[in-house]
């Protein structure tokens, strides 16, 4: 049994003008000690996926009743609020993309982390504050002993992001959902945080779902990778396989569009992906990437491809249709 098993996750937002399907029919599993990267362009559904796993979707959003999120075999989506509260923060913790979602502006950082430790682990107050200070120090916040008393508004965006990481790992969760935990950071601080997260995974046997739009960050860090586009899984591969050669043309295009260190404008023109992601209420018939794809053929514009299994990997693209190849 996998630690976490997600089956047919679909999350919609019922907006006044139209219905928006933010993630559609997403299935995957997460093993113990695994780092799974969820990647894709802005708006493709990365955050909604992560939030849905913790049942943190609010009206007008709804998770389709057919969806299942099995954590150690029990379906999180059908748990009572009370039971959910127990799991959130202690067994599954989240680093939110939006710092405001984690911290209450009215209380100092340290006491908020200490409070979490008290609730989830029963740590005594004095000790909890000490641990909070240690955690802030671990995420490279200078003068942690002074900073524990700071209120959220007194920290820069990057510092808040790091404090959130401290809060999330404070209870040594089994699963960490990290939603763009390093986007506001410098490369050097980013490298420090990545090292810290790796260390946590190793030391506490933690598993992690790491959400990012930065492919470069994933290489050599995540075990597996799930590429989303317009709410759908486009490819699922081990990250070694993916970075060797992505299966989906979209993955290939993304890789080509990344300017590599040591390329210069007089040598090569940057590859661009034409057009942009279609808005969710005006997705084209067929494959949603077809209008931008340079490998598009007739069927792509007529019918949406299913996920094809290619060995251990999965890809949603008609190029891999086995019937055609027969």
């Amino acid at each position: 049994m996998s630690l976490l098993e997600v089956k047919n996750l679909t999350t919609r937002f019922n907006l006044l003008e139209h219905q928006l399907i933010a993630v559609e029919d997403i299935s995957f599993s997460l093993e113990e000690n695994e780092i799974l990267a969820v990647v894709g362009e802005s708006g493709c559904g990365k955050s909604v996926t992560a939030l849905s796993l913790m049942k943190l979707i609010e009206s007008p959003g709804e998770i389709d009743p057919q969806s299942q999120v099995l954590f150690q075999g029990q379906d999180i989506l059908s748990l009572s609020d009370e039971k959910l509260q127990k799991i959130r923060g202690s067994e599954i913790a989240m680093i939110f993309q939006e710092p405001a979602a984690s911290f209450n502006p009215l209380f100092p950082l340290g006491s908020q982390i200490a409070e979490a430790l008290k609730i989830h682990r029963g740590t005594a107050k004095e000790e909890a504050l000490k641990t909070a200070e240690h955690l802030l120090d671990q995420v490279r916040i200078a003068e942690a002993n002074r900073r524990v008393k700071d209120y959220p508004f007194q920290l820069s965006g990057g510092m808040l992001q790091r404090a959130m990481t401290a809060l999330a790992i404070s209870c040594e969760p089994q699963i960490l959902l990290a939603d763009e935990p390093t986007t506001a950071l410098d490369v050097t601080v980013q490298a420090q945080i990545i090292n810290l997260l790796k260390e946590q995974v190793r030391r506490y046997n933690m598993s992690m779902i790491f959400v990012t739009h930065d492919l470069e960050l994933i290489d050599g860090f995540a075990d597996n990778l799930m590429l989303l586009y317009a709410g759908r899984i486009f490819e699922k591969s081990s990250s070694v396989d993916f970075f060797k050669k992505p299966l989906h043309p979209y993955g290939e295009d993304l890789m080509k569009a990344i300017p590599r260190m040591g390329l210069f404008k007089d040598e090569i023109e940057l590859f661009t992906i034409k057009g942009q992601v279609p808005p969710s209420h005006r997705r084209p018939v067929g494959c949603t990437y077809a209008p931008r794809c340079n490998k598009c053929f007739k069927r792509c514009t007529q019918e949406e491809p299913p996920l094809f299994n290619i060995g251990e990997r999965q890809v949603r693209c008609w190029l891999y249709n086995k019937e055609d190849q027969k």
């Binding site: 490279r140 200078a142 490369v187 050097t188 980013q190 490298a191 420090q192 990545i194 090292n195 790796k198 930065d214 492919l215 470069e216 960050l217 290489d219 050599g220 860090f221 070694v240 970075f243 060797k244 890789m255 990344i258 590599r260 260190m261």
Partner: peptide, 24 residues
């Protein structure tokens, strides 16, 4: 050199831990 070493790259390798990274 530190900036260049700490920048994430697609090379199949984990991020380096270059000297000076941990400093303030």
């Amino acid at each position: 050199e530190l900036l260049m070493a700490a920048a994430p790259k697609i090379d199949g390798k984990p991020l380096e831990n270059p000297p000076g990274l941990e400093g303030e």
